[in-house]
Computed example of a mutant assay.
Amino acid sequence: MTEIDTAVPDFRDRVVLVTGGTTGMGLATARLLLERNAHVVITGRDEGRLASAAERLSRAADDARLLTVRADSADLTDLEGLAEVIRERHGRLDGVFANAGVGAFQRAEEVSEAAFDHVVDVNFKGVFFTIQQALPLLDAAGGGSIVINASWTLHRGMAVAPVYAASKAAVHNLARTLGADLAGRNIRVNSVSPGYIVTDMFTGFAPEQAAQDAIAATVPLNRLGQSSDVAEAVAFLLSPQSSYITAQDLLVDGGLVTALPGS
C-alpha cells in the first residue's frame, strides 16, 4: 500500500501570487501561505487597502516574504507590470490564486452594458490575462499550480446574479480547458467554488443577521463558511499533495449544491 503524506503542506521557498489579496478569501489565503513559509505577492486596486492588508499580514511573516503590488486585474497594462515586478523580485512563480473578482446582484432587465462589461472584465478577462502573464514565470519554476476562484452559482441558477454567475461559469470552464492545455508544461489548473462565505461581498448582499441566518439554514452543515475554509482548500490545490489533480472544481460550500439540509 502506498503511504500517504498527511503532513501540513509547507510552502518554504515557493512563490505564490494571490490577486485580490487585500480582503476576504484572498487575504485569508495569503495569510495561510505566509504562515506556511511561502513568499507571497498580493495585488489590489487600492493603495490604502494594500497598506492595510500588509499591516495585517505582517503578523504572519516578515516583510521580506510579502510583496504588495497595486494592480487592476481588468487592466492588461497593470498585469504586464505585475509580471515584471515579480520577475525582478523572484524570477519565477510556483503558484497562482486568481481570486480577484467583483459581485453583481441584479436581475436580467436591470443590467446595463457598463455593468455587464465591468463584471466580465474583472471576473473573466482579468483571470485569463492574469494567467497568461504568469505563464512564463511558472515555466521558469519548471511548472506549478493555478487555482481560479469560481462560485457555487455556476452549479445552481441564482435569479439575482445572471451576469456574475455566467462569468464564474466561464472561469470554471477555463480551468478545465487550461488544465488540458498546460498539462504538458507541468502546470496544473483547478478551480474552487465557494458557497456562502462571510466576506464583505456576502454581507453587502445580506447585511441583516436574520437574512444571514436564513441563508445558513439552507446549508446542510447549518453554518456559513469562513474565508479560512476556502484558504485551506486553495492551499491544498496549490501544494504537491494535489499533484495528480488538474482540470477539476472543488466545492467549498458545506453541501449547499449537492445535498439537502436535514430536518
Rank of each mutant, 00 (worst) to 15 (best):
H39Q: 12
L27A: 01
N186C: 09
D139R: 10
A61L: 06
L178D: 01
Q241V: 06
V219D: 03
G101A: 12
Q248H: 15
M158R: 05
A38D: 00
S112M: 13
K125V: 01
S58Q: 03
A150T: 09
P220L: 09
A175C: 10
N173P: 03
I86M: 08
D5F: 06
D5T: 11
R188T: 10
D249R: 08
E55S: 09
D213A: 11
I187L: 13
Q241W: 13
L17W: 09
D121K: 08
Y164N: 00
T199I: 10
V219N: 02
E84G: 08
L154Q: 13
L57H: 01
L50D: 06
F105K: 03
K168T: 01
E88K: 14
S243K: 12
V119A: 06
G179Q: 02
R92W: 14
A210P: 00
S228P: 12
R14H: 12
A30Y: 01
S191V: 00
A28G: 02
A217C: 03
F11N: 08
S193I: 00
D200G: 15
T77W: 09
I42V: 03
G103W: 00
S58L: 02
G254S: 07
A259V: 07
T43S: 07
V189P: 05
H39N: 09
G103R: 03
I42M: 03
R188Y: 10
G157R: 09
P220V: 02
S52I: 09
T177N: 06
V147C: 04
F97R: 04
G142T: 07
A114W: 04
L33Q: 04
G225S: 11
E3P: 02
L237H: 00
T6H: 14
L224D: 06
G48E: 11
D253T: 03
A108N: 06
E109S: 12
A180N: 15
E84C: 05
L221T: 03
T43I: 07
A206I: 04
N99C: 08
R14W: 10
N173K: 13
S58M: 00
G91Q: 14
D200K: 05
S243V: 05
E55Y: 11
E110S: 12
V111H: 07
A104V: 11
D13N: 10
T2L: 15
D229C: 07
A165E: 04
G142R: 07
G255C: 01
V96W: 00
A206E: 04
S73P: 00
A30L: 02
R12Y: 11
E208H: 14
G255T: 00
E88V: 11
L182P: 01
D117R: 08
S243H: 15
V120M: 13
Q226F: 14
N173R: 14
D249Y: 02
M25F: 03
T177C: 14
L182G: 02
L33G: 03
A74E: 07
A183K: 14
